[in-house]
Simulated assay, not measured.
Amino acid sequence: MTPFAGIRCVLFDLDGTLIDSAPDLAGAANAMRECRGLAPLPLERYRSHSGSGARGMLKVAFGVEPGHASFDALKQAFFDEYQQRLTLNTRAFDGVDRLIRALSGAGLPWGVVTNKGQRFTVPLLQAMPLFRTAATVISGDTTPHAKPHPAPLLEASRQVGLAPASCLYVGDDVRDVQAGRAAGMSTVAALYGYLGPDADVAAWGADRTISAPEELLKWLELP
């Protein structure tokens, strides 16, 4: 029997799990560098930090982190720049199309729970027809707390009308697994996402790991 036999809803992180947004996140950071007379950096410098959004991009691009005197101003400039290029080069990962269609075909509701702000999440998903069947979309500012706090996942389960124990959460960051476990959900770690070189996935405590989106179908026993 599959370990996820009782799952009635699948929830996903967004960046690094459903979509590869690294090119547009890096593009926004590089545009800021060029405006300041700095040379652009290669995408691979940014990729493993993409799951951290503005915080990760600004760390790579300018070496600043929260608490630095210029961080808040740079973060706002980054948000404004990124909003102009949300879907220029952002794509669903290979296999996500098949995965979402299989879930929908099986009558299994699915949704998105991300730390990305609503100002970005909503227009991005609306621009990608594949994701318009989501039963719920929870952004980083939908609830008072972001992951790894369980509040966003609990709100998602409330919106779909299912107990947290009936939901599975899939993500590519330790915060995703922490949030899922705290919410009482089963968890899957996506190894194809934005894992940094020091990520110790085995220590996260996820119920399963997948190396490609379609592998989730095997654990759910879906064709």
Rank of each mutant, 00 (worst) to 15 (best):
M1V: 08
T2G: 00
F4T: 01
G6I: 01
I7P: 08
C9R: 03
G16D: 09
I19K: 06
S21N: 12
S21M: 08
A26D: 11
A26P: 09
A26W: 07
A28C: 11
N30G: 03
A31D: 14
E34Y: 00
E34L: 14
A39Q: 14
L41N: 07
L43F: 08
E44W: 08
R45I: 00
R47P: 02
G51L: 06
S52H: 13
G53D: 08
K59G: 15
V60Q: 04
G63E: 09
E65M: 10
P66M: 07
S70M: 10
F71P: 08
F78L: 05
F78K: 06
F79H: 15
F79L: 15
Y82E: 06
Q83V: 08
Q83Y: 07
R85Q: 15
L88C: 13
F93M: 05
D94G: 10
G95S: 12
D97H: 14
S104W: 00
G105E: 05
A106F: 01
G107F: 00
G111Y: 01
V113Q: 04
N115T: 15
R119S: 12
P123M: 03
L125M: 07
L125G: 07
P129C: 10
F131S: 05
R132S: 15
P144I: 02
P152C: 04
E155G: 01
R158V: 02
L162M: 14
L168V: 04
L168T: 05
L168P: 10
Y169C: 01
V170K: 04
G171Y: 07
D172S: 02
R175E: 05
R181C: 05
G184M: 08
M185E: 10
S186Y: 04
T187S: 02
A190D: 03
A190P: 03
L191Y: 02
P197N: 09
V201C: 12
G205I: 07
R208Q: 14
R208H: 14
T209E: 09
I210T: 00
I210D: 02
S211W: 00
P213T: 10
E214I: 11
E214R: 08
L216T: 05
W219R: 01
L220P: 03
L220G: 01
E221V: 08
P223M: 00
P223F: 01
